[in-house]
Design a binder for these strands. Structure first.
Lengths: 341, 341
DNA sequence: TTGCTATGTCTTTCATGGATACCATAAGCA
DNA sequence: TGCTTATGGTATCCATGAAAGACATAGCAA
């Protein structure tokens, strides 16, 4: 590895001069700079981020915490897309990304210590149990931190606009003439609470009276539970004409229940009976089965998270913590029948 | 941040002694060691990986290269699972993971330089265009490197056992009494070639004569193309009784074609007509629709990659480059009818 | 015009960041 | 004296930043 020392020797100047030349300091002669840069280029010099980090106490490295006990973290397209967005934005600013875990060396330790050990400039936290004391410890430290889909007092949070998302879906169905809209929702988390709020908000604004049996709690990514929930809905004396499903996995379970009951969603249907369906963030199913879905803008969430985190790092004084709501959009398929025509 | 210096001062010993005590060197007194360790603990001392890396030239940081032009890299469950396996194994050995990209700072540069810049101990390469000159440059460098699903001369490669995978599936269908087995396969890549080899191998060994129109080229993750391919198969004068699909996405497209033709897979079927289906690495669909599939052991592939890479790093002399075939297994669902009963 | 200081530009010296490796030294004991 | 064991001193990894030094030119008084 060629270092500044080598360049200095070759150019007959001191190491400090080389440092100045390569870092674009202004108190250095034009010719010297050119000469040094040329030699650096020629020798294939590459800065050593380790040495720089030691001296400057800045690593240009961001930590990413994606704990996923159920191995469902990165497997979720939502999270892997967030990661990609985060990565893209971070890289554009010259930051790299390192995963955080609760080891230091091969000894278990706290997340906070891990961050210090690696000298990370900041961290993004997503998809974890936000009540985990180790996470709380991290949030209580002075390391710049941004969370996704969760609010920690005093920290910037990037939030998917769940309220507006479900509101949009319900209005969409309403405009297609649906009045009997059911909602199978996920377990009790901040995300789910937002979506339920959106549902009730839309119903209230539209003057829809939704019977309580149309709102069924389930669990995210559990096709069997959702199949069961769908079955219940289909067996109601007055079944809904449209069902809002919580996610891809669940929808497939629900669709199985439909097939079993001799019905399917519009366009795919080869039965007399059909039920309209809406998905939440079912991007793949939108592609595969033309399901109408609200798409969370996961890529934008990731990019925004990186952007805000980097701002926190570079301008700690000017920056206020904030809550950024990232809205998605409706991806229209053919799974909702227009009852108006 | 408390450093060794602080501990040394507090204990009245030299920094060198502290280093020895904390690193488990043996040329140090038991009592001194205990005292130093206790104080370190008490003061909340945390090693500084940056300083250590500078001195030892070892970062305990592994690079991960997951280029994904089509944004299909981490979104693939296969790759995100590999990442998780890799991460788990690396962390167990005290290594962290940093993404590699072709930037250094915010300037575009080579992957190789990026690795040097960060002082990475080794790299794993997956899901990229292996003909990209920047990748070739990386492979030509002296940085320890392991590839996944691709072989670079002189480097260790971890390979999913595609030949055996398809072979297993075909034998399974055969044992269930199927003789008319169709195969919709992906685009021409090393992976696909392996799978085709497995298909032909199984047919030959089983004495199956598969008509050429049963083997249809498609593209991975393209439900529309697969829908079309399935339609073709169903319209044949002598259609297959079992279809092997290339992936989850494609299967859903294929299943749509089935529904349209008034048939479905066993168990789900509410029609008279049914077609058995097999998937390749369709783990989610196995969960959701009880599809029988061959599961690649992506987690094991990731772990193996980390294991071999770390071996290369820690024992550069003893270690020979090798090609490791990771086999998966059959995940039996209800999507293949047993024609024997 | 000479000579001296002031000014500004460029470059070097030196200390520093935290940890480790090597060598030196001291103490203790055979 | 020679050897082991425990500990300290110091250089080093590479880059940076503050401060000091070198040098040249400009400005001004004598």
């Amino acid at each position: 590895m060629v270092s500044m020392k080598d360049i200095a020797k070759r150019c007959g100047v001191s190491v400090a001069t080389v440092s100045k030349a390569l870092n674009g300091q202004k108190d250095i002669g034009q010719e010297t700079r050119k000469r040094i840069c040329a030699v650096a280029q020629e020798m294939g010099y590459m800065a050593n981020s380790v040495a720089r980090a030691l001296k400057t106490n800045r690593s240009y490295n961001l930590g990413m915490l994606f704990v996923d006990e159920r191995r469902s973290g990165l497997g979720h397209e939502y999270f892997s897309t967030i990661l990609e967005g985060f990565k893209a934005e971070a890289e554009a600013h010259g930051f790299d990304i390192t995963f955080i875990n609760s080891h230091v060396g091969n000894q278990p330790d706290s997340y906070t210590k891990h961050c210090r050990y690696r000298g990370l400039d900041g961290i993004v936290v997503a998809c974890v149990d936000f009540n985990d004391p180790r996470i709380l410890d991290l949030a209580a430290s002075d390391i710049p931190l941004v969370t996704i889909d969760h609010i920690f007092e005093g920290h910037t949070a990037i939030l998917s606009d769940n309220i507006n998302g479900v509101d949009t879906l319900v209005r969409y169905a309403y405009n297609k003439g649906h009045r009997k809209i059911a909602f199978i929702h996920g377990e009790n988390t901040a995300v789910t609470r937002g979506r339920l709020t959106g549902f009730h908000q839309a119903c209230q604004n539209l003057g829809l009276e939704i019977p309580p049996e149309y709102i069924i709690p389930s669990v995210y990514h559990d096709p069997d539970l959702c199949e069961e929930a769908t079955r219940k809905l289909l067996q109601l004396p007055d079944p809904p004409t449209c069902i809002l499903f919580p996610d891809d996995f669940s929808f497939i379970g629900g669709h199985n229940a439909m097939l079993e009951a001799g019905c399917s969603i519009p366009r795919l249907s080869v039965f007399n009976r059909e039920i309209s369906a809406l998905g939440y963030d079912c991007i793949n199913l939108a592609r595969m089965m033309h399901l109408t879905t609200y798409t969370q803008n996961a890529y934008a969430i990731g990019r925004t998270a990186a952007d805000r985190l980097i701002r926190l790092i570079e301008h700690p004084d000017e920056t206020q913590t904030e809550q950024v709501l990232v809205s998605g959009g409706l991806l229209e398929g053919t799974s909702v029948r227009d009852l108006n025509v």
